[in-house]
């Protein structure tokens, strides 16, 4: 059993959990993720390791469907059936000179651990974090503390730059040298934002989020096309050279179970109101 040490909602529908998982915490590096299963009926879902403290790891997730909504109902002291990790290859961190980490929405959660390792390696670190509006912006203070410079963008202009992270990234690339870029967020955001670094020839990483099952390279559910080759994101990634990724295929594969996912959410909503058991469904 893996205990949830703390559980809090840090923005609308975005939750921060610290989970006790010593074997994950002991070995976790920037860019890696874990897979958890809530209970015996649960599915395995991947979440990025966002920070480590002692024998606990932090995950930050958006409640989008059945499992993440169910997870959001858990409180400090509750237990998860399974947590496995750290999974995936660590980020390739060196002293590049100037590095920029860009996050969109819940994807911002993946940045602190990468930014911290980049900083420790001696880089000048620029952060760009963007959300739809000021209320959905997460981890601003933490990112401000780690990064040498931090830019904020909102789609509606309610805070920081009025527009997209891609706009700020372009602006910065126009007037200075940036040696490496990481972009993490929804697939469409990564596609659009990484296009911005192409003309500048800057090596850019994205963290891909295809549908996974085992997370250990045994099923191929997570296969993505990178540079014309099929890769398994859970073991060959999840970070890949953004300019080689077939984002259209990724987005198509993310939609495989849309109908079932919709049914599962509806069933979950019905279940939670009727039995009031906080989402723990039986049979």
């Amino acid at each position: 059993m893996y205990t949830v040490n703390t559980a809090s909602e840090i923005a609308e529908r975005i939750y921060e959990f610290w989970i006790r998982a010593p074997q994950v915490a002991r070995n976790a590096r920037a860019g890696q993720f874990l897979i958890l299963r809530i209970d015996e009926q649960g599915e395995r879902i991947p979440l990025t390791i966002s920070a480590v403290n002692g024998d606990a790891v932090r995950v930050v997730f958006m409640a989008v469907g059945k499992t993440t909504q169910h997870l959001a109902t858990l409180k400090a002291g509750d237990a998860l059936a399974d947590v496995v990790g750290p999974l995936g290859k660590p980020s390739e961190i060196e002293n590049f000179g100037t590095a920029c980490v860009v996050g969109g929405g819940a994807g911002i959660a993946c940045l602190p651990i990468i930014a911290r390792e980049l900083k420790e390696a001696g880089n000048h670190v620029i952060g760009i974090i963007g959300a739809r509006n000021a209320g959905l912006l997460i981890l601003e203070d933490e990112m401000r503390e780690i990064c040498d410079e931090l830019f904020i963008t909102t789609d509606d202009g309610s805070k920081g730059f009025h527009g997209y992270a891609a706009d700020v990234l372009k602006r910065e690339l126009d007037h200075r040298t940036i040696d490496r870029v990481w972009i993490i967020g929804p697939a469409i955001m990564m596609k659009v934002t990484s296009a911005a670094t192409v003309p500048y020839g800057v090596k850019t990483f994205v963290s891909l989020n295809p549908i996974m099952v085992d997370g250990t390279g045994m099923c191929g559910s997570c296969r993505v096309t990178v540079g014309g080759e099929t890769k398994f994101a859970c073991v060959d990634g999840p970070e890949f050279d953004a300019h080689q990724v077939d984002f259209v295929e990724l987005m198509q594969r993310q939609r495989i179970y849309t109908d079932q996912e919709k049914a599962a959410v509806e069933r979950f909503a019905e279940h939670t109101c009727r039995c009031g058991e906080g989402g723990h469904h039986h049979g």
């Binding site: 009926q41 649960g42 599915e43 499992t67 099952v213 179970y257 996912e261 049914a263 599962a264």
Partner: peptide, 13 residues
């Protein structure tokens, strides 16, 4: 392993 044949009682589709 995930009992997807019994979706939605089990969560995996």
């Amino acid at each position: 392993l995930m009992h997807a044949d019994r979706f939605p009682v089990f969560d995996t589709p």
